[in-house]
Design a binder for these strands. Structure first.
Length: 743
DNA sequence: GTAGGGTTAG
């Protein structure tokens, strides 16, 4: 059942084009139709039983708008891109909004642009690509044209096609210099896309074929290492380059210093390279200084000291008449903001304006983030107005940032108003915008409702039925039940849930496809519900979005674990394709929800599966359990499992290690630094079981106990019973062949 | 061939 379902867990990015969006909508509809339901709930009314299951009318209408719908079967590569785990929009934004290439003159021919367009249409079909390349072979003018094509393919994330074009071109080129240019170009493209291993391969081939031994190719690969944060590799390559007799130039040095910044190297290392550069007679330019400033502003800076160097460097620049530009300022402003010097960051913005350096997107984004983190929302909105007056359009990310900050500070009502406002201005909210608001559910002290929601409640309470062309619209159904007071939910929870359901409805209306973060957010919201009924309303939303995730969450919650486990495993296979923090967030959310509602054995099965799949990277050995990336439910379930494992060691007559520790961290990974919620939860758990673990004096985030004391505790008659977890709701196994959980 | 930034879950 579940295995026949197309992948539904995505971390779709806002920059995805309409083509992909359409595929996703179509994909979404399939899920809605829900033939793969694991546990179809009984219909609430006779009409609900009729297929198809509720699909927002606007989603269905999408087919009319785009008759040239691309079939799902041809969309594999685009969908696969959703699973790449790339989370930053930085690179893609830069493609659209970044600086123009300096140097001015266009070097490629018009034919190259034509070739590019034709190639893009052949994406995914190597043979077609080959035939387009053959048809243009005689018309393209050397490396300038090919380099243009390679760069543009890179901008479209067509790295595989870029490699194919490179190989085509380099095999038909006799001149070494031209071959070298092509190699440097494709190395750079691959580096920018984070394909550093491929870049390295191209480089090595180019060297062995005799056209790669140039300062350009080396610089390009150093830069590729830089972009992947591989500072050590960059430095090693730099040494190899010198040994092979090539002289580094200014660009090489700049790329190397950049590698220090991106690879988290300390300032000392970068400044040694800078000194080496000076002693070799190179004068630093603005890029050198800006790269050096990035080192100061990097992660090391957040712990203190290096911003003072940054100001010295800026002074030195001015003294040498290398004037700071917008990159200089935004680098330093960011460093200030990261290290908590928000006032200093703001005065740098003023200084920048005074120096007549116009603020660009990055600068405005910095400014917005500063105001938002200070809670100065009026000024944050003014930033948006100001940038629109300098002719820059605030996009969905700008608005989402403000909305998220509002939500975090508890102003959910204002955030929903802003959501309306941005929509009216023609800026489409995306899934991230909505996820912020869903995450706010259950956090605010009181329900803060939008005017629309208020009208909705009044309408429903007065018994007015909203006109809808779909009788089976389950969301409206829920609204009606809420309004009629049939559900066992307190007044506060009732209003809040109406608010969040309103948010879901807008997502449906705007055809915003949820992603795995949405699912995690819904599950987390369930964990904050005080009643089962309230949570089931949220789970109902989950069901409308995705049957597979719903089936697993609902099945485990209801205690049908043996029945759903096979589906859970296939769901975890999909989650495994995400990057580790996305995956662990999902496991944490699911476990917390199960734990919260008393399904502790189910929660434990989930965390053990996560451990088996290395979701949390480290976790356990016989002497140490590391919980620091886990939520409190996941961590507690894991403590039980680990202690049971220790128990079996003792039971089998083996000796325990001299010292056992449980690490919880001290809140470093929490949203609020120093918030030790996890530590407190574990402390309570260990205390309640009468365990001998105590907080270590040397490390407040660590519980320790001598092995013999743990062994003695294990031998007490009550201990094993305390360690075994049970579900509040459990149903007899219907598949006797399925083995019960074995630790 | 080289420089800065961004929203959600944690």
């Amino acid at each position: 059942m579940a295995s026949s379902t197309p992948p539904t867990l995505t971390t779709a990015k806002p920059y995805q084009n309409h083509h992909i969006q359409n595929i996703q909508n179509q994909h979404h509809r399939r899920t809605h139709n829900g033939h793969n339901s694991l546990h179809p709930p009984p219909p609430r009314n006779p009409t609900a039983a009729k297929p198809p299951a509720p699909i927002p009318a606007t989603v269905a209408a999408g087919t009319h708008r785009n008759p040239n719908f691309t079939p799902l079967s041809s969309s594999k590569s685009e969908l696969a891109a959703d699973f790449s785990g790339r989370r930053s929009t930085r690179f893609v934004s830069k493609m659209h909004f970044g600086r123009q290439k300096s140097g001015g003159s266009i070097r490629h021919s018009i034919v190259a642009e034509d070739a590019l367009q034709q190639l893009i249409r052949c994406s995914g079909d190597d043979r077609l690509i080959e035939s387009v390349l053959l048809s243009f072979q005689s018309k393209l003018c050397g490396s300038d044209d090919y380099n243009f094509v390679l760069r543009e393919l890179g901008n479209r994330n067509e790295w595989s096609m870029a490699i194919q074009c490179f190989e085509f071109a380099v095999n038909r080129e006799r001149r070494r210099t031209e071959q070298g240019k092509l190699a440097s170009s494709v190395i750079s493209v691959l580096g920018r896309l984070g394909k550093v291993e491929l870049a390295k391969k191209v480089f090595e081939t180019a060297v062995s074929e005799g056209y790669g031994n140039t300062v350009y190719a080396y610089s390009a690969l150093i830069s590729a290492y830089a972009k992947s944060g591989l500072c050590d590799d960059a430095i090693k390559l730099f040494e190899t380059m010198k040994l092979s007799g090539l002289k580094p130039n200014l660009v090489t040095y700049n790329a190397l210093i950049d590698a220090c910044g991106k690879g988290g190297a300390d300032f000392k290392r970068a400044s040694d390279i800078f000194d080496d550069m000076l002693s070799n007679g190179f004068q630093p330019d603005r890029i050198t200084y800006n790269s050096l400033l990035a080192v100061c502003s990097g992660d090391a800076a957040s712990s203190g000291g290096h911003m003072d160097y940054a100001f010295q460097i800026m002074a030195e620049m001015t003294a040498k008449n290398i004037m700071p530009n917008e990159v200089t300022y935004s680098t330093v402003i960011r460093g200030c903001a990261k290290s908590g010097r928000l006032d200093q960051a703001l005065s740098l913005v003023s200084e920048m304006k005074y120096a007549n350096i116009s603020l660009d997107r990055v600068s405005y984004n910095n400014l917005l983030a500063i105001y938002a983190s200070l809670g100065r929302f009026d000024e944050a909105l003014n930033v948006v107005k100001e940038m629109e007056n300098t002719g820059l359009k605030a996009d969905v990310v700008f608005y989402s940032e403000i909305i998220d900050s509002l939500c975090k500070k508890g102003f959910v009502e204002s955030s929903a108003l802003l959501l309306d406002e941005m929509t009216k201005k023609g800026i489409q909210p995306n899934v991230v915008t909505y996820n912020s608001i869903i995450n706010a559910f259950g956090h605010s002290g009181e329900a803060r409702l939008t005017n629309d929601n208020k009208r909705e409640i009044v309408c429903l309470e007065n018994g007015e039925k909203k006109v809808t062309n779909r009788d089976e619209d389950r969301i409206i159904n829920v609204f009606e039940q809420l309004a009629s007071g049939k559900l066992n939910i307190g007044e506060k929870g009732r209003k809040e849930i109406i608010c969040v359901l309103g948010v879901f409805r807008k997502m449906h209306e705007l055809e915003i496809k949820p992603n795995v973060v949405t699912f995690s957010a819904i599950l987390n919201a369930c964990s904050r519900c005080s009643s089962f009924e309230e949570a089931s309303l949220l789970l109902e939303e989950l069901r409308l979005f995705d049957n597979q995730v719903y089936g697993v969450a609902h099945g485990l919650l209801m205690g049908y674990r043996e029945n759903v486990w096979v589906h859970a495993l296939s769901l975890f296979d999909e989650v495994k394709r995400m990057d580790s923090s996305t995956a662990s967030a999902f496991y944490n959310a699911l476990t917390d929800m199960l734990w919260h509602f008393g399904q502790k054995r189910g929660a434990q099965m989930v965390v053990l599966e996560g451990k088996r799949r290395q979701v949390w990277e480290n976790t356990w050995s016989d002497s140490c359990l590391d919980l620091h990336l886990m939520s409190s439910g996941a961590a507690r379930a894991m403590v039980h499992a680990w202690l049971l494992n220790i128990y079996s060691i003792v039971y089998e007559g083996h000796e325990l290690p001299g010292l056992l520790s449980i690490l919880t961290g001290w809140g470093k990974h929490s949203k609020v630094v120093g918030d030790c919620a996890l530590k407190r939860a574990i402390e309570t758990l260990l205390g309640s079981m009468g365990s001998p673990f105590r907080v270590a004096t040397s490390n407040i985030g660590r519980f320790i106990s001598p092995g013999p004391m743990v062994a003695a505790w294990m031998r007490e008659s009550d201990t094993p019973k305390l360690l075994v977890l049970e579900d509040d709701r459990a149903y007899p196994q219907t598949h006797p062949n399925l083995q019960p959980l074995v630790l």
